[in-house]
Design a protein around this nucleic acid. Structure first.
Lengths: 161, 161
DNA sequence: GGTTAGAGTTCCCTGACGAAACCAAGGAGG
DNA sequence: CCTCCTTGGTTTCGTCAGGGAACTCTAACC
C-alpha cells in the first residue's frame, strides 16, 4: 500500500509538503541554519534517533535543501550546509516561529528571539506583497488557476475568495 | 514507545510542527480556506482516506485551528471554518506556495495564482520585518534566547549568526 | 420499502518512527 | 602494538500513523 504522493499533486503547497511535511526536516533545517551542522550535534540537540536523522539528512541532501561537505578526509568527516533553496525555505521557519510565539508560547513567552539586522529590533516576519509591499494575508487575496493547473482536475481550487 | 512530543520543546517551530507537522493538516487548512469545507468535498478533493480525514479534522478542531459548525440539524450536517489562529496559520501556506512555485513547479509553472487585492497583481508573499517593514530573511537576523527559554537546555540555539 | 446524501467508524495491512545495539574507519595515547 | 575515543552511520524489533475498503447511522425523498 503506497503512501500518498504529494509531489504529484497540482498544488505547490502539497509539493512543498512532500519535501518538508514532517517535523524532523524543518527542525534539522533550523539547526543547520543556526550552525548546528554535524551528525552528533544534531542528534543531541534534537533528541532524534540516529536512524531517522540519517534518513532525513539524506533526504534533505537529495532534495537539494542541504549540502554535505567533507571537512576532513582522514578520517572522513562531514558537515551539512544550506543550499540557496534551503535558505529560502527558512522563510517558512520564521513564519512558524511567529505563529508559535503568538499562539503556543503561553505565559513564559517566546523561547527564542529574532533581532533584525536592519532595524536592530526584536521582531517577527510579516507577509507582504512582493509587488506592492502592502500586507498580504490569506484574507487579502483571490485564488486563481495557474498555467501549471492544465491537465489536473484534483486539487483544483479555482474558487475565488 | 512514544512518538516525540514536539509540543514540549522550548522552540516555537517545534510547537507549531506539533500542531501541523504532517502533510494532511496544512492541505485541509488550505481547502477550508478556499471554501471546500464539508467532509465529502474535502475527501474527494484531497483523495485522503475517510479515516485519516476524520482524525485530522478532529485534531484541527481540538487545536482551535478550525471550527465545526452545524448547518443542518435534521439530519445533522457540518461545515468547517477557520478560527482566527487558523487564518493566521494560512500565512504559512502562502510561504509554502511561494517556495513550491519557485523550486518545484517546473516548466509548467505554478498551478495556482494569487492575486493581491490591494494592487491587483498576481503576486507572492515576501517576509518583511513587522517593525521596520524592510525584508527580513533568515540571513537578516540574529537569533537570541528568549524569556521562554529559561529552564530548558535542549533546543537551545543561543548561537548568534 | 429502497435509494441517496452526509458524516463518519472499524478493521487489517503497510510504511515511518523510536530505542538500542552494532559496525567501520580512523586518530590519539599509553 | 593495543585500547579507547570520535564520527557517522546501519540494523533490528516493536510501536504508531496512514491507506483501502467495508461498514454504520440518521435522515430525506420517491
Amino acid at each position: 500500500m503506497q503512501r500518498t504522493r504529494f509531489s504529484e499533486m497540482a498544488c505547490s503547497i502539497a509539493r512543498t509538503l512532500d519535501v518538508i511535511g514532517e517535523p524532523w526536516s524543518p527542525l534539522i533545517l533550523r539547526d543547520v541554519y543556526v550552525g548546528i551542522n554535524r551528525f552528533d550535534q544534531l542528534q543531541q540537540d534534537l533528541g532524534i534517533s540516529r536512524k531517522v536523522l540519517s534518513e532525513r539528512l539524506k533526504w534533505l541532501v537529495d532534495s537539494e535543501i542541504l549540502t554535505r561537505v567533507e571537512y576532513s578526509s582522514k578520517p572522513p568527516r562531514y558537515e551539512y550546509g544550506l543550499t540557496a533553496r534551503g535558505v529560502e525555505l527558512c522563510d517558512l521557519l520564521l513564519v512558524m516561529v511567529r505563529w508559535g510565539d503568538r499562539w503556543l508560547a503561553g505565559a513564559e513567552g517566546p523561547p527564542v528571539l529574532y533581532r533584525h539586522h536592519a532595524c536592530g529590533q526584536i521582531s517577527h516576519v510579516e507577509p507582504r506583497c512582493a509587488v506592492c509591499a502592502e500586507p498580504m494575508r490569506a484574507t487579502d487575496i483571490d485564488v486563481l488557476p495557474g498555467p501549471g493547473m492544465a491537465g489536473h482536475q484534483e486539487m483544483g481550487p479555482a474558487a475565488s475568495k
